[in-house]
């Protein structure tokens, strides 16, 4: 467990006390530096699981360890601190804050975390540009555009750079390619996995599209680890 990026044991989560459990996971583990593909259909609880891992949701039972921090035992403020210092997050769409520049969007996590500010070096803007360049966004013309004027693929790369800045130990991506065409999607996943490997971050990539699994070290189906999935299906 100490070597895990994520370690879950006996997790149970329901939206209300009387509701049936949406997630009932006996055991789940993601090793440090591992790139894992987690598949599940819409409504299966993927985003909820990511919320639990990120510490914005609390389980009714069980233990969630993120990079050695027992999220279920920490106070809300400490969970916020762990998330700020150690997690990078990429959403499906609308990943960027519309009123910030491309570089300012990438440096957002550095504003909230001293640890990531230190890791990003003295000049967070330069580090942001370096990451953007590695993800194929080095043209000044593109960097000077309003973020909402970028293509969806470009926006997702900006979001990836933001998730990776300051060297977080874990990057979680919630359906980040669902709005991309196949070529752009594959190139995005390659760039993301390469950068995660380079920085040593573990990657938890969640999608409903099973065809993406070959891009990752390992792929699992949420239904295989979530006992509630079977109960919901048979109900």
């Amino acid at each position: 467990m100490k070597g895990s990026a994520i370690a879950i044991e006996g997790l149970r989560f329901a939206w209300t006390r009387d509701a049936p459990a949406l997630l009932d996971i006996n055991r789940f583990e993601l090793a440090r530096g591992e790139r894992l593909f987690l598949r599940g259909p819409s409504g299966s609880g993927k985003s909820t699981l990511l919320g639990l891992i990120a510490g914005v949701l609390e389980p009714q039972a069980g233990q969630i360890e993120v990079l050695g921090h027992d999220m279920s035992a920490l106070s809300s403020a400490r969970r916020d601190r762990v998330r700020a210092d150690h997690l990078g997050v990429i959403f499906q769409l609308f990943n960027l804050v519309p009123y910030l520049s491309v570089v300012s969007n990438v440096t957002l996590p550095v504003r909230f975390s001293k640890a990531r500010r230190r890791a990003a070096g003295g000049d967070a803007g330069a580090e942001a540009r370096r990451l953007l360049a590695r993800l194929g966004l080095e043209d000044d013309e593109i960097l000077s555009r309003r973020v909402m004027d970028l293509s969806v693929g470009q926006q997702q790369r900006v979001a990836a750079a933001r998730a990776l800045i300051g060297g977080p130990g874990l990057v979680i991506a919630d359906e980040p390619t669902s709005a991309l065409d196949a070529d752009t999607r594959d190139r995005f996943i390659e760039l993301l996995t390469d950068e995660a490997r380079r920085s040593g971050a573990a990657l938890l990539f969640v999608s409903h599209d099973a065809a993406l699994a070959p891009h990752f070290d390992r792929g699992i189906d949420l239904a295989d680890i979530n006992a509630s999935a079977h109960r919901l299906e048979t109900a």
Binding site: A84, V89, F91, N95, V97
Partner: peptide, 14 residues
């Protein structure tokens, strides 16, 4: 709301 979610996800506390 989405802007707030992004800020939360990138480390902003409530």
């Amino acid at each position: 709301r989405r802007e707030m979610s992004i800020l939360r996800a990138t480390g902003a506390r409530p």
